[in-house]
Amino acid sequence: MKVIQFEQTGKPADILKPVDLPTPEPKAGQARVRVVASPINPSDLMFVQNRYGIRPQLPSLAGFEGMGVVDAVGEGVEISVGSRVSFTGLGSWGEFIIVHHKAVIPVPDAMTDDIAAQLFVNPFTAYAMVQDSGVPEGGWLMLTAAGSAFGKLVIQLCAKRGIKTIGTVRRDDLNDELTKLGLTEIINTETDDMATRIREITGGKGVPCVLDAVGGPTATEAMKCLGKGGVMLIYGLLSEQDPSLNVGLMIFRELTVKGFWLSDWMRRADAQVRQEVSKNVIEWLTTGDAQLPVEARYGLDQIAEAVEHADRPGRWGKILITP
Rank of each mutant, 00 (worst) to 15 (best):
T88C: 10
A195G: 03
V19A: 01
T112I: 00
M46L: 11
A128W: 05
H309V: 11
A304F: 08
R84P: 01
R268L: 14
V99F: 15
A271S: 08
D192I: 11
A159F: 00
T196D: 06
R253Q: 09
G236Y: 08
I186V: 15
A37L: 11
A304W: 04
D71R: 07
W265I: 05
P26S: 07
G230T: 09
G82H: 00
A146C: 07
G288D: 01
E276T: 11
Q241D: 10
T88R: 14
D270K: 09
D242N: 14
T23Y: 04
R34N: 13
R171K: 13
N280M: 12
E75N: 14
I201Q: 03
G216M: 06
R84A: 15
D242V: 04
F6G: 01
M46E: 13
E283D: 13
A159Y: 00
I98D: 14
M142D: 03
E78D: 13
K2T: 02
A126S: 15
P24V: 07
Q302P: 02
R32K: 15
G91R: 13
G299Q: 04
I4P: 11
F124I: 06
T125Y: 13
A296M: 05
L285M: 03
V210D: 05
T165S: 08
D301T: 01
A128S: 12
K27I: 09
S86T: 12
D301K: 03
G151C: 07
D301Q: 08
R171Y: 02
Y235H: 12
G288M: 01
I163P: 09
M142V: 02
T144D: 12
G162M: 10
M266V: 08
P12E: 10
V210C: 07
A146W: 12
V307T: 12
L226M: 09
V210M: 09
H309D: 14
C209N: 07
A145I: 04
D14V: 11
P313Y: 05
V69N: 07
V19M: 05
E305K: 09
D270V: 05
E25V: 12
V273T: 13
D172P: 00
E185L: 01
H309Q: 15
L255R: 02
D71C: 11
D311I: 07
A145V: 04
R312T: 12
I79T: 07
E190H: 12
A146M: 12
I166Y: 12
D264Q: 14
D192G: 07
Y52H: 06
V277E: 06
R267N: 14
L58A: 09
G203C: 06
Q241M: 06
S244V: 15
P18I: 03
I54Q: 15
F124G: 13
K17I: 01
E295A: 04
K318N: 11
L143A: 08
I105E: 05
Y298C: 05
I187C: 03
L153N: 10
D270Q: 05
A128C: 03
I98R: 11
A306F: 07
A62R: 06
E95P: 00
Y127P: 02
L61I: 03
A126P: 11
L285P: 00
A213N: 15
D20L: 13
R197N: 04
K279L: 10
I282Q: 03
D14H: 11
E200G: 00
G230L: 05
Q291W: 00
R267L: 15
F124K: 05
C158S: 08
